[in-house]
């Protein structure tokens, strides 16, 4: 029971309190780049969830079973990047063969995730916080869900912004950044929840 409760708390903490975009400011590039439409942002979020979950698992294994025994933990960043890049490539090939519909839905976003700091960020956070295997994977999934929530909300806001009257100098990215800032302030309200 307490274990379940812990996981629930962990979920709330990852999705709301320590939201990747609004609290940690990781993954801001896709957050601004692919939040034009709710549909595409949702696919991006799902692609990130997928990759971050698997990346957490693999990075945990590489770190704890190879780097720590050999005493070369300083290699973690470069090893993580290697793992993530190879993983995304593999997943892309696999999806292209097994599920063309999902592949075309994710489209360009899948390879884009390779260079996404959120994925490297989750692996590094897992390592720094000393999470065990279960919590590493959960952290990956939940944080990515938080990312999805943020990007979908933002896409909704931006769709509304499209049809509203905005001063010419604020059109486009300026107003988007202002909205993102306001959303970050709103998310600050969740701090202290867990």
């Amino acid at each position: 029971m307490t274990e379940n409760m812990n996981i629930l708390l962990f979920f709330v903490s990852c999705v709301l309190t320590n939201n990747f975009i609004f609290s940690r400011f990781l993954g801001c590039c896709p957050f601004l780049g692919v939040s034009n439409k709710v549909e595409t942002s949702l696919s991006m979020g799902l692609a990130v969830t997928f990759v971050m979950t698997i990346a957490s698992l693999f990075c945990y294994m590489i770190y704890n079973w190879l780097l720590v025994p050999l005493g070369i933990t300083f290699m973690s960043t470069i090893a993580f990047i290697l793992v993530i890049a190879a993983l995304v490539q593999f997943v892309e090939m696999f999806l292209k063969k097994s599920s063309p519909t999902l592949y075309s839905a994710l489209g360009i976003y899948l390879p884009l995730i390779t260079t996404n700091c959120a994925v490297l960020g989750v692996a590094t956070l897992n390592m720094n916080n000393g999470y065990n295997l279960l919590y590493s994977v959960l952290n990956g999934t939940f944080s990515a869900l938080g990312f999805t929530l943020a990007i979908v909300l933002m896409a909704g806001v931006r769709e509304r912004l499209e049809s509203s009257h905005i001063p010419a100098c604020m059109k486009g990215f300026p107003i988007t950044l202002v909205s993102a800032g306001l959303m970050a302030v709103a998310f600050m309200g969740f701090s202290g929840l867990v």
Partner: peptide
């Protein structure tokens, strides 16, 4: 470090 990265 070099070996590990190479092998990986």
């Amino acid at each position: 470090a070099g070996l590990l990265l190479g092998i990986l």
